[in-house]
Each structure stands twice: as C-alpha cells, then as structure tokens.
Design a protein around this nucleic acid. Sequence first.
DNA 1: CCATATTTATGCGGATTGGTATAGAATAAT
DNA 2: ATTATTCTATACCAATCCGCATAAATATGG
Lengths: 206, 206
Amino acid sequence: MRSDTEDMKRKRGRPRQFEPDAVLDSVRKVFTEKGFEGASLDDLAAAAGLNRPSLYGAFGDKEQLYIHALNQVGARSQARLAEALALALPIEERLTLIYRWAIAAYSAPPLHAGCMIVNTATTAATTNPAIAEAARKIRAGQEELFARAFAACVARRELPAEPAPSARAKLATAMLDTLAVRARLGESAASLETFAQEALALVCVI
Amino acid sequence: MRSDTEDMKRKRGRPRQFEPDAVLDSVRKVFTEKGFEGASLDDLAAAAGLNRPSLYGAFGDKEQLYIHALNQVGARSQARLAEALALALPIEERLTLIYRWAIAAYSAPPLHAGCMIVNTATTAATTNPAIAEAARKIRAGQEELFARAFAACVARRELPAEPAPSARAKLATAMLDTLAVRARLGESAASLETFAQEALALVCVI
DNA sequence: CCATATTTATGCGGATTGGTATAGAATAAT
DNA sequence: ATTATTCTATACCAATCCGCATAAATATGG
C-alpha cells in the first residue's frame, strides 16, 4: 500500500502501514460518538484498523490521542470558517453558509453526534485539564475569526459599531454551541435550519 | 438520625438510613463533575455516604440513578425559571435574573462544572437513549416556559409579534447552553455576566 | 416473643479497562 | 549480506468496572 506522502527522506526502520491523518479521522468519529471516557482503546484501535500498541506509539496515551483528534477537527473547522468568512457576501449570507455547514456536520445521519468540542471535550474538561486547554484554544481561535469578520463589517459600514464585534462573535459561537447540543439531542436538521435563520435576523439585523 | 418526612405510615421492614433527595444531591454533583461514564459507582456511593447495593436498591442501575439525578436538577431549575418568569418585571430584567442565577450555578467554585444536562447528558445521549429522552423532556419543558413568557409579552404589547415567541425561547435557551459550555471551559463568571447583558440587548430590544 | 419484611454491609466475580513487555516482521544504512 | 532501527502483533498485567449474592441488622405486624 505504501501510501506515505513520499515527499522526502524516509526514516530508518520499518515504515508505518497507516496514514496518521486517516487514523485520526476514524478515532475522532469514535470519540465524538462515545465521548472521551466512553470510548475504549479497543473501540478506537478497531475503528482505526490497527492495534493498541501502534496507536500508543504514534500518538501517546488516550488523552494525547484525543487531543490530536481534537486539534484535527479544530483545524478543519477553522479552515472552513475562514473560507466562508472570506467570501465577498453580506455577513448574513456568510453566516447562513456557516450554520448550514455546521448543521449538516452536527446532524449527519445516523449518529447526529453534534460537535466533538461542545459535546465531548467539555465533559472531559473537568477531569482532564489538558483537554480543557486544547478546547479553549480552538474556541478562542474560532471566536477571533468571527470577531475579525464583524469588525471588518463595521469598518465598511455594513454593521453598526454597537454591539461590539466581540459580542457579536460570542453570539455567533453561541449559535454553534446550541446547534450542537440540539442536534445531539435529536432535533431535526430542518428544525435547526429554520431556527438558525430566525436567530440570524436577531443577531445581524441590528 | 431518622430524618424521614415522618408524614405517614412507615413500611414494614428496616427503614432507610438516608434521604433519597440528599443522596441524589451528592450523586448529581459527582455526575456533573465527571460525566456519566466518568463517574464510577464507587465514586457515587462514597459521595453519598453509603454502599453500592443501597444505591442500587433505591434507584436501580447506573443509568436510572443518573436519570433520577437529572430529573431532580431539571425540576429544580424549572421551578426557579418559572418563579423568575412570573415576576412583575420587564422581560429583560427577568431574563437578567435567570442568566445571573445560571451563571452562578454553572461557574460555582471550585469546579465551574457547567450544566448537568448540557455538559454531561448530551455526551451520554448517543449511547444511552433513555438519558437522551430524559434530557429532551426537561429541555422541552424549559423552552415551553420561555415561549409562554414571551407570548405573554406579545399579548400585552411589551414585545412585537415577530420574531415568534418560540424563536425567542430557543434563543433564550441558546444563551443558557453557551453559558454552560463557556463556564465549564473556564470562562470567568464576570465575563459571562457582561456577555449575557450584551446578548440580552440583541435578543430583547427588537 | 416470633415471624416477616426491608435495608445495610461485606465481598465476590466475570468482564473490561488502559498500558506495556516481548517477540517477530519490514525497511534503511553500512 | 549484515546490522540497526522502527513498526506490528500477541499476549499479559494490575486495576477498575458494574452488578449481585449472601448474610447481618433493624424495623413492624401478629
């Protein structure tokens, strides 16, 4: 199979027989479904298609493995967020795109498992400070992206200066939070879509 | 100690040496701190000051015990919510009271453990349908209370009919959701207070 | 005082947990 | 080829998990 990126000098010994990013993908799904405590290393190794010692050797213990997966999903969602916010569209339309994508991701059948950060990292945050720190960092980055976008709107007179861009940013992530919670508790994607639209009016029209 | 309610005929055998409500109190704290999977029956029994068989005999298995604690916190918060919403105050002030109480509860030191439903029940919801159902029921009741309060505001011309009271209700619970998430991730109570005030302007002024 | 009923306390037991030790397999450098 | 190095696989470890079986303790009804 040898699916390495092949980009440069190989290391000395036996090469990996898996792609770390694909493994983190599988691992992330299990963690998102079952939570940090609920997912066993057997579950994770089985989903990734390899054995526990390989997982351990590549990513460290369970907490570090979880944080690796968390950072993967954080980087991806941050990239999509930045992409949507960079579009040359009114802010409402950009937010509509973001919420639509979030709803699709959070309520993807059959699990509608919500958001890994909101629905699993917060639970583990009390007993695992490292997880709390990683989640904080990701969320701070996302909120900063929102705040910058709102500030740009203010600068080009698309939005009034009050409420402050930082407050708008917090409200924007608040919507993502509640969408994740609601999706995980079974609210339908259609219901979430209409709620997001109604809320958008309140957040952006002023 | 014999702290029964003493209200009527005692049952036949040996009486309980604990108050179920007080036990659920201790149990709820442990569940809220560690989550459903993270809390062991040993933790719970130790916190409650009794042995596992007693817990099991009184409340059933771990899932049922968790649901009992969930319903306890649900009933209490619903009572406080109804009480605040029944006050003869402008809706913004009533919501301010509610958010202030929620922030105090969610970020109570030293744990700032957030909300049992938002931060632990949602995590267990995917693998434990009974927990999901219990959480749904509590949240539906709270949202219904909000919706009725907003509808009353519309009826007495305190708020315009649009956006619909149900949409406002969802936004009100969205604030509670994000406050729980943020408190659990370590955001300070003061920061949450100012955010709640800024958001209240957006939600209610229109 | 005896019989009945319920709750406590001790402790077992099979299953599962996270982590690792050890041995075998595969590749690169020499 | 040979050696060095890294990864894979099997199996094992102590610890913990949840649930229950059993027996002692404590109350009521007769």
